[in-house]
């Protein structure tokens, strides 16, 4: 058995530090998703109303966010804000801003398409059955919308957690950065640490993301 350098993580508080790095990433994605969901619900619902100009503005916002890599967005906010606005944003703050902008755009689009996908005759037949507007939304439209929306929103969480790996590039000390530090610090005593440590990082990401994506797939199948 060659030395794979996993033992480095057993030294001192190394494993704990790695998990703290993971927690930083998780915290940023959870805060961002927490803000994105209510904002996305509002934006998405507004999109199904008749305001034409609102739709155009949202489209432009959504497409702009979608066309650029998230890393470019992170650079724009992190480096650009200092330059243009004179702010000195921390990496964490810049990450939360970018992820929230991105999450709101995606969530808004999910809400919009879920609402649009409810066929018109569902509204008509509930009216024909004598439901009030409130009852119609409560018993018929919202339950169907949630069924379409929930799996996709859960997927958005996994996407966000995975994307947090990028924030080391704007100086946030998250799991990958901690891993680099650990490997660097033990370069002499454990030259093979890069294999073991990055393997553990890879597995940790999987452990965090897999339950979410499995839940999403499960719900999607169940509610199809």
């Amino acid at each position: 058995m060659p030395d794979l350098g996993i033992d480095v993580l057993l030294k001192g508080s190394n494993m704990l530090r790695l998990l703290q790095g993971l927690w930083v990433a998780m915290k940023i994605s959870l805060v961002s998703i927490g803000i994105s969901i209510p904002l996305g619900l509002i934006v998405g619902t507004l999109m199904t109303t008749r305001f034409k100009s609102l739709k155009v503005i949202f489209r432009i916002y959504l497409e702009t966010i979608r066309i650029l890599p998230q890393l470019v967005l992170l650079f724009l906010v992190y480096f650009g804000s200092t330059r243009a606005l004179g702010w000195n944003l921390s990496g964490e703050m810049a990450s939360i801003i970018v992820f929230t902008l991105w999450g709101t755009a995606e969530m808004g689009d999910l809400v919009r398409s879920a609402l649009v996908s409810i066929p018109k005759h569902q509204y008509e037949s509930s009216e024909a059955l004598g439901f009030t507007k409130g009852q119609m939304y409560y018993y018929i439209i919202i339950p169907q919308t949630i069924r379409r929306l929930l799996p996709l929103s859960i997927n958005l969480i996994t996407r966000m957690i995975k994307t947090t790996s990028l924030i080391l590039m704007i100086g946030v000390v998250e799991m990958l950065k901690v891993a680099q530090q650990i490997i660097e610090a033990n370069r002499m005593t454990s030259p093979n640490a890069a294999f073991g440590v990055f393997l553990v990082v890879f597995i940790l990401y999987f452990i965090v993301c897999w339950p979410f994506s499995t839940l999403a797939t499960h719900l999607e199948k169940k509610w199809r």
């Binding site: 995975k162 080391l168 490997i183 393997l199 890879f202 990401y205 994506s213």
Partner: peptide
């Protein structure tokens, strides 16, 4: 369920 960056670090380093 893993980010590309983690995949790349594992491959490269």
């Amino acid at each position: 369920n893993t980010p590309l960056l983690a995949q790349l670090f594992f491959l490269y380093y």
